[in-house]
Design a protein around this nucleic acid. Structure first.
Lengths: 246, 246
DNA sequence: CGAAGGCTTGATAGACCTCAAACACAGTGG
DNA sequence: CCACTGTGTTTGAGGTCTATCAAGCCTTCG
């Protein structure tokens, strides 16, 4: 369907993302640009990939927010990660053939499907890209671990604050979102599923954060008047994101 | 210090582990056997690697139990994984140069240090082994996600049961532990740190499990009279471990 | 205007935590 | 052989964070 649609290499979402964690040679950028992309648009609240699927493509987020989640037998849900443009949430499917979790949209999202075959061919030819994508999956794991610390040991208040901090850094890195805020198209219900909290409690915590002047949240727009203060409350330290500068 | 110490390939802990998730050619086994190992013994409750370290080796567990954990500013701890012989808990350090978590022993443990350089050389020469180790790190991530579902959404009772089920499968796979039980050299305090629970509550949950006849736990010896029953309570499904048979 | 989805609020209940103390057991030393 | 110590387990009694239930409110959209 679509291909070197991103005239400038730096507009390709994957290149933009990967440059946040590693340096890319021109040749490597060319290889990424040459990947065949089939862009699909998914409505809000739709599954892109489902648990037990055996995908033949990876999905690169081009636009919108998606999440990784699992369902429990009784229908409750645990969200295990939010993914933004440039992320490949099911990169694992390259080596884990059966999905052990689902990927679903939170809002309308454009997703570029990349055949495993094309990816594999690229990685064979550019082993350093293989290392970089491996690194990418490891960072995904690192985020998961930090998240887990939150759910296991932090109060709801800190947990929410921590998530907001993480998203700020990640969105800023890819050029969405600014120092003092960003668009957060996530319902309180979804936040609860992500943080292991009930919707009601998420609501109360958000009000606390508002009351303390740490955030201004209206509709989908989040403003953070004092980022440092929020970091402090959340005990947030971005080193686990393994950005290049760090 | 040490090398092809494991005369039979099948006694090399890494080979034994990897054969649980993939097939290895003779050549690949030889390559693994040729890896230089420096075996060190760590006492119980000692750090093998620490957060913020920049290791130049990976550590392969040869004997004993170790765990991955993070400390919070106030000293509380979250354990994010138990690792057993054949595991390389800091394989990530190959691509993530700064450790974002610590690895510590639970009991006296023998650990084989493998220089990054040797690993990298091996992976360059045997790209399929690179894929398999990548896969290995992805499985680590999958375990993490399942664990997270537990902490976020399951009751303490189910959480404990789930952990016991997971360890049973993993230990049996490498030849330790049997269908109906295994050695569990983990204190209730450590279980709590792993599951996001207090020691006291872990104790009460264990008594419940005992009361319901699901486990017999004395000293470090766990017996599971009816594995299926425990699986059911835990809602345990081993597919997330991505074993070969599945 | 009505419907639907999300947000907000109040009241109640329960899972789990904290504090505190007793108990059990292995290892140490006299 | 017996205190003595240290670590881990067990028990009890509050207390608190968070869930659940239930209802009202607000915005968006056809």
């Amino acid at each position: 369907m679509n291909f070197a649609f991103y005239g400038q290499a730096d507009q390709h979402p994957l290149i933009r993302r990967l440059e946040g964690i590693a340096d890319l040679s021109d040749e490597e950028k060319q290889a990424i640009l040459a990947l065949p992309l089939t862009v699909k648009v998914f409505e809000a609240d739709t599954d892109v990939v489902r648990e037990k699927d055996r995908p033949s493509d990876c999905c690169l987020i081009v636009n919108g927010f998606v999440c990784r989640y699992k369902l429990l037998p009784d229908g409750r849900r645990q969200i295990m990660g939010f993914y933004i443009p440039g992320d490949i949430p099911d990169l694992q499917s390259l080596h884990l053939h059966v999905m052990d979790n689902s990927i679903g949209t939170l809002v309308t999202a454009s997703v570029a499907m990349i055949p495993h075959e094309s990816l594999r061919k690229m990685l064979r030819r550019h082993p350093r890209l293989a290392d970089i994508l491996w690194r990418e999956t490891l960072i995904d794991g690192a985020m998961l671990r930090e998240w887990m610390v939150g759910i296991g040991r932090r109060t709801a208040y800190q947990r929410v604050a921590h998530l907001l901090c993480e998203l700020q850094v990640r969105l800023k890195m890819i050029g969405l979102g600014k120092e003092d805020g960003y668009e957060l198209p996530v319902t309180q219900n979804e936040l609860g599923d992500a943080l292991g909290l009930s919707t009601v409690h998420v609501n109360r915590v958000l009000q606390d954060l508002r009351g303390h002047g740490l955030i201004v949240l209206r509709g989908g727009a989040l403003r953070i008047p004092d980022l440092k203060a929020l970091w402090q409350v959340a005990e947030f330290n971005p080193s686990y994101l393994h950005l290049k500068e760090s």
